[in-house]
């Protein structure tokens, strides 16, 4: 992360809340993600006006309105390109992007790959509930093939799910971690780690949709810390992520690719030398 202004007075998580009441269903995993994020910002003492949180569309993408940092609630699938444009133009800011699995891996899937590849210094938080919550319960790219509760896919999708962490690694993400909304403190720690790590950081958060996937309440019993430290070796990481059962938590990969950040220092101060090229 580049140096951004921090506050010298200690900050509390609630200092980062906007006071707008979330529209989420009571018990939705996203409440804990909001909490984890405010904890992370407080821990880093980031000045609220130096942080921008960009989202797409979905239940999870409502997040920006609930924080008092700068926010942008864009359109479905486009959080990452908005965040990328902002960070490139304003490297002084701490730029975060957030959204759901449908937003990030389906309609925004191409941007996910290319954002990993471009490696701009932003942190991307995906609240994965393996369902489209906002449109009332359709299958997403991370839904299991036999989940048959959506009218759109009677008998299940019969299509294998997508493994976002593996894709992130293959596409060049510089930091890959998993957290769970059942452990907001652990999630906050991972988010701090992600923001501090230079380049594109991907934080996959298991965040149950208790309305359309009530069985996901059991996730809290299945998650456990990854047994080993994060690796910086992509080959080792590939092996671990390919054999991962989706429930190991913690920072899993920390790469050392330099972030993409063009130099924005002008080398001329008027346009006459540019216009000269057109003279006959």
């Amino acid at each position: 992360m580049m140096e951004t202004a921090t506050s010298c007075t200690p900050m509390k998580p609630k200092d980062y809340k906007s006071g707008v009441k979330p529209v989420w269903c009571p018990g939705c995993g996203d409440f804990s993600v909001l909490m984890a994020l405010t904890k992370a910002l407080a821990e880093m003492r980031l000045a609220a006006e130096q942080v921008a949180l960009i989202s797409g569309i979905g239940c999870s993408s409502r997040l920006p309105a609930y924080l008092n940092v700068y926010g942008f609630h864009s359109v479905h699938g486009r959080a990452l390109p908005v965040a990328t444009g902002l960070k490139i133009a304003r490297p002084d800011l701490t730029v975060l992007a957030a959204g759901g699995d449908g937003d990030g891996f389906s309609i925004g899937g191409n941007h996910f790959m290319h954002s990993c590849r471009r490696n701009v210094d932003i942190t991307y938080i995906v609240m994965d509930n393996q369902v489209y919550g906002m449109t009332k319960g359709q299958a997403s790219p991370t839904t299991d093939p036999d989940w048959d509760h959506s009218k759109l896919t009677p008998g299940g999708t019969k299509v294998n799910p997508y493994y976002p962490l593996v894709i992130a690694l293959a596409s060049g993400a510089n930091f890959i971690a998993r957290a769970s909304s059942s452990d907001p403190n652990g999630a906050a720690k991972v988010i701090v780690d992600a923001i501090r790590h230079p380049g594109f950081s991907f934080v996959h958060i298991l965040s149950p949709c208790i309305t359309f996937r009530p069985e996901q309440r059991d996730w809290k019993k299945m998650v456990r810390p990854a047994p080993v430290e994060a690796t910086s070796n992509p080959v080792t990481a590939a092996h671990r992520l390919m054999t991962d059962d989706n429930f190991f938590l913690g920072t899993l990969y920390k790469g050392n690719r330099p972030p993409y950040q063009p130099d924005l220092t002008p080398v001329i101060d008027d346009l006459s030398s540019i216009e000269k090229d057109f003279e006959l």
Binding site: A52, I54, F72, S74, V75, G77, R78, P81, V82, A83, T84, G85, L86, K87, I88, A89, R90, L93, N110, H111, M113, H114
Partner: peptide, 18 residues
């Protein structure tokens, strides 16, 4: 950008930034 969906949204981000 990777496509026009990205490019137009990059602009929204940079312009939001000023």
């Amino acid at each position: 950008a990777e496509d026009e969906l990205a490019s137009i949204n990059h602009l929204i981000g940079s312009s939001f930034g000023g």
